[in-house]
């Protein structure tokens, strides 16, 4: 085995920097803005629809999420969402439609390993960490808030 020394590594990193392309940050920023903005603007249209029908704001928010999840799941199932994601980057991944994509895509993919150990077990392979860290952080944050600020 040949493991390079620190000095060799540093020299190598310099060579690499010369030839390694950077991600097109500006282009990615623009496409992320357009994609993310469009998705959330569409969601706002859905939300306005519910609000106009007298649904309470809190429920309207939850309904809107469900509608967007449906849209994201459907676009994933028919094989469109990954194309949006390739163009829009985090603009497609950050909205809840991307969360749906992250759940539905492994469900489709790993179905071939069976419904229980494939589909069922791997469904949250990408989205699971979001739920885990979301729930843990929310618990700690809520607890601290109640202890520090008190109820109210």
């Amino acid at each position: 085995m040949t493991k390079a020394s620190k000095k060799e590594q540093q020299h190598f990193e310099r060579l690499l920097r010369k030839h390694r392309p950077n991600p097109p940050v500006l282009r990615n920023t623009v496409t992320a803005f357009i994609t993310g903005g469009t998705i959330t603007a569409l969601a706002q249209l859905v939300m306005n629809f519910f609000l106009a029908r007298g649904v309470k704001p809190l429920e309207a928010t939850a309904f809107t999420s469900a509608v967007m999840i449906f849209a994201g799941s459907f676009l994933t199932a028919i094989g469109v969402y990954d194309l949006i994601g390739r163009w829009g980057g985090m603009g497609a991944a950050l909205p809840i439609t991307g969360f749906a994509n992250a759940v539905v895509s492994p469900a489709l993919e790993y179905k071939r390993e069976g419904y229980v150990l494939g589909l069922g077990a791997k469904m949250f392979v990408v989205a699971g960490p979001v739920i885990v860290f979301g729930v843990v952080t929310a618990f700690v944050v809520s607890l601290l808030r109640l202890l520090l600020w008190g109820v109210g």
Binding site: P23, D82, R86, V104, S105, V125, V126
Partner: peptide
């Protein structure tokens, strides 16, 4: 990632 997962690929 799974095939239908929408991620951007790095230029490298």
């Amino acid at each position: 990632y799974p095939i239908e997962h929408g991620t951007q690929r790095h230029p490298t």
